[in-house]
Amino acid sequence: MVKYRTRPGIVLTDICGENILVAASSLTNLCPYVTQINEPSAFLWKQLEKGADTEQLIAAVEAEFEVDDREALRTVIEDFIKQMAGLNYLLSDEQKG
């Protein structure tokens, strides 16, 4: 399975309680400048920043929240990764950056 990590130059920040991903100027041709994400997504992002893979993300969510359906959780996490990778906010371990 492909492992993803956060792209250097993408910063998670908080504005009035809202979680925002901001891309540094060197990345503005590559990915959106600003994207608003919800609280669970920000939690996943922070785990990705620490280098977590999908299994570790699942474990981190399970440790933090009550989860009934592990497979549904996996789908949510994979969708999140797909979305962030689609925005070029993530690098796969096959990419350099």
Binding site: I15, G17, E18, I20, S25, S26, T28, Y33, V34, Q36
Partner: peptide
């Protein structure tokens, strides 16, 4: 405030280069 974040960022005349 949650509706203001993106438009406000876009009105700020600066594209930050570093964290």
């Amino acid at each position: 405030p949650r509706e203001a974040v993106i438009p406000f960022f876009n009105q700020a005349i600066v594209t930050p280069g570093t964290e």
